[in-house]
Amino acid sequence: MSVAEAEAPTAQRRASGSSFYAAMRILPRAQREGMFEIYSFCRLVDDIADDGGPQAPRLAQLEQWRQDITALCAGKLPEPQFAGLLAAIKTFNLQKDDFFAVIDGMEMDVREDIQAPDWQKLDLYCDRVASAVGRLSVRVFGVPEAEGPSLAYHLGRALQLTNILRDLDEDAGINRLYLPREALVAAGIESTNPKAVIASPNLAAACAPVIARARAHFAQAAAIMKRCPRARVKSPRLMYEAYQIILAALLARGFAPPREKIKLPKHQLLLALLRYGLF
Rank of each mutant, 00 (worst) to 15 (best):
V3Y: 15
A4Q: 13
A6R: 14
A8L: 03
A8P: 00
P9H: 03
T10Q: 04
Q12G: 01
R14F: 11
S16L: 06
S16H: 03
S16A: 13
S19K: 02
M24W: 12
M24F: 12
I26M: 15
A30S: 09
A30P: 13
E33S: 07
G34E: 11
G34Y: 12
S40D: 08
D46R: 13
D46V: 15
D46T: 14
I48W: 13
A49Q: 06
G53C: 07
Q55K: 12
Q55P: 00
A56H: 02
L59P: 02
A60M: 15
W65S: 04
Q67I: 11
I69K: 01
I69S: 00
T70L: 15
K76I: 00
P78A: 09
P78Y: 14
P78K: 11
Q81T: 14
G84V: 12
A87Q: 10
I89M: 02
N93R: 14
K96S: 08
D97I: 11
I103R: 01
D104Q: 07
G105T: 14
M106C: 05
E107V: 07
V110S: 03
R111H: 02
E112S: 05
D113F: 11
I114P: 01
D118V: 09
L122Y: 04
Y125I: 13
S131C: 05
S131H: 01
S131T: 06
A132W: 05
V133T: 02
R135G: 00
L136Q: 04
S137D: 11
S137P: 03
R139L: 10
V140Q: 10
F141G: 06
E145W: 12
L159R: 01
L161K: 08
I164P: 03
D171H: 06
G173T: 06
L179W: 01
P180N: 09
R181P: 00
V185Y: 01
A186N: 12
E190H: 15
S191D: 07
S191W: 05
P194T: 05
P194S: 05
V197Y: 04
S200A: 12
A205C: 07
A205T: 09
A206F: 07
C207M: 12
C207D: 08
P209M: 08
V210R: 03
I211R: 06
A212E: 15
R213C: 06
H217L: 04
F218R: 02
A231T: 13
A231G: 04
V233A: 04
S235A: 15
P236D: 06
Y240M: 12
A242K: 00
Y243Q: 05
Q244D: 09
I245K: 00
I246C: 04
A248T: 14
L250V: 11
A252E: 15
A252W: 07
G254I: 15
G254W: 14
G254L: 10
A256S: 12
R259L: 15
E260Q: 14
E260W: 00
K261M: 10
H267T: 12
Q268F: 02
L269T: 07
L271P: 01
L273Q: 03
L274S: 10
L274C: 11
R275Q: 13
F279C: 14
